[in-house]
């Protein structure tokens, strides 16, 4: 039983002013992903069985390239936000939780930039 006041216990733990930022970002990316994913699936259906040339031509179209970059940005962001919540829910050892969340965030940025670079390389005629 601590004699400290509730206010004293939470002081220094940071403000709660950004408590909804994670939740809101998850929703915004979800909303953006609805049309982007549907467009991507339709594009894949059209290109099923097509060779490298058709896919490269598809990505050289500026509209396709920009939509693909948006899909990558929203997709990797949405995924890392979601995986973070899963880790925080099930992993209770503080060091492991920190390590896993950090790894997920680093991986999302690195792999997302890798995917975006691939799109740009084709789009800009590499």
């Amino acid at each position: 039983m601590s004699l400290r006041t509730p206010l004293g216990r939470v002081r220094g733990l940071g403000s709660a002013k950004e408590g909804t930022a994670h939740w809101w970002a998850q929703r915004l990316t979800a909303l953006a992903l609805i049309p982007l994913v549907l467009w991507f699936v339709v594009s894949l259906i059209v290109m099923t069985g097509a060779g490298h040339g058709a896919v490269a031509e598809w990505l050289r179209n500026p509209v396709s390239a920009v939509l693909m970059l948006l899909l990558i940005l929203a997709g990797f962001h949405h995924a890392q936000l979601g995986l973070q919540v899963v880790i925080e829910d099930y992993v209770h050892a503080e060091w492991l939780k920190f390590a896993l969340v950090t790894a997920v965030k680093f991986a999302a940025v690195a792999l997302g930039i890798g995917a975006a670079f691939s799109v740009l390389k084709i789009a800009l005629g590499g």
């Binding site: 490269a56 792999l111 995917a115 390389k121």
Partner: peptide, 11 residues
């Protein structure tokens, strides 16, 4: 990861 592989392979 599959998406990244597919795009990187195309690039």
């Amino acid at each position: 990861l599959l998406l990244l592989w597919w795009l990187a392979a195309a690039a």
